[in-house]
């Protein structure tokens, strides 16, 4: 009985695995749910893969999580800043193979230190299968999220965000400028809660919207070319 007061402190409230998440941008909530589950691998594919991966970084970095971008030298920093990513918590790391360092140690340090690790399909496919497996296991135990840009068979993604561009607006034949892009996101994945019931889930967003941010498509944001229906006023 003498220890009951101390044991009371050591008991933590129970959390389920799906409650251990990192936040997502409100516009993506209908697509991926309330958060990215820690320990999972997310793959962003299709013609808007990089924008999609960047959009996933917005909410976590704003909430204090750190992200590492490994082996993606072409990462558009300005686009990320426009989208709302907190750049002071983004670290850019060279591909260990390019520097000639031990990839296993580098991956371990990344997973230990950062909540999100963004990397490219090229980097992941250059890992040996055993190393990729060890990476996935460590991801699980540390509760980090790995975001892979573009498709590769080297990793088995828990969640796939497949993008398709419907239209660009604002640009014409020799006039105007790029303004907004309608992107359709298909969600699929072996652990996705909606995948079992409905197959995959589709959602259309503006990525980027007029100011470079991720935005919902509504009556105000309908890109050029589509007709805005006028509502009758009672």
């Amino acid at each position: 009985m003498a220890t009951s007061s101390t044991t009371a402190f050591s008991i933590r409230s129970l959390t389920f695995a799906h409650e251990r998440t990192v936040p997502v941008h409100p516009v993506l909530v209908p697509v991926v749910g309330s958060g990215l589950v820690r320990g999972q691998t997310v793959m962003c594919t299709g013609p808007a893969s990089m924008s999609c991966a960047t959009a996933l970084l917005v909410a976590p970095t704003q909430h204090g999580s750190w992200a590492a971008v490994m082996g993606v030298p072409s990462f558009g920093v300005l686009a990320a800043a426009d989208m709302g990513v907190a750049l002071e918590r983004i670290v850019f790391v060279d591909d260990p193979h390019r520097v000639g360092a031990d990839a296993a140690n580098v991956l371990g340090a990344l997973v230990d230190g950062f909540d999100l690790v963004v990397t490219s399909a090229d980097v992941m496919s250059s890992l040996s299968p055993s190393l990729a497996r060890r990476f996935a296991t460590r991801l699980q135990s540390r509760g980090a999220v790995c975001i892979v840009v573009d498709d590769t068979r080297a990793v088995s993604a828990d969640l796939r965000l497949d993008t398709e561009v419907s239209a660009w607006s604002g640009i014409g034949d020799g006039h105007g400028r790029l303004c907004t892009r309608r992107v359709r996101v298909d969600v699929d994945g072996r652990r996705h809660r909606l995948s079992r019931r409905d197959g995959s889930l589709r959602h259309e967003v503006l990525l980027p919207g007029p100011g470079g941010q991720l935005e919902e498509i509504d009556a105000v944001n309908v890109p050029d070319g589509s007709v805005v229906r006028l509502r009758s006023v009672p």
Partner: peptide, 8 residues
């Protein structure tokens, strides 16, 4: 003007 390219 924005948007900026996501790949540079």
């Amino acid at each position: 003007p924005a948007p900026a390219p996501s790949v540079v």
